[in-house]
Amino acid sequence: MNLRDLPILRHLEDVGPTDPVFDLLVLLGPLVIALIALLGRTPVTMTTTTAYVLGFVAYFGWNATKTT
């Protein structure tokens, strides 16, 4: 299934820069924060949060390289 087929992403797509990965990051943000609130500072939350931030940075860089 394509990410764009999810109804909530389709709604976000109308608002953001029409990029399903960034839309997904907006949706995942509160979940990551909720996970930190529930579990505290553990290896799981550290890894998840690092992956979230690095995921944004890596995709941002890749997207920029692809476009320019």
Binding site: G16, I33, M46, T50, Y52, V53
Partner: peptide, 24 residues
């Protein structure tokens, strides 16, 4: 209306990223 909604979209994304960065 689309402009202000996009502004909020960008602001939300950056807010979540900033929270994660500061926590890390």
């Amino acid at each position: 209306v689309s402009t202000v909604r996009t502004i909020w979209w960008i602001f939300l994304l950056f807010t979540f990223l900033s929270i994660c960065l500061l926590w890390l």
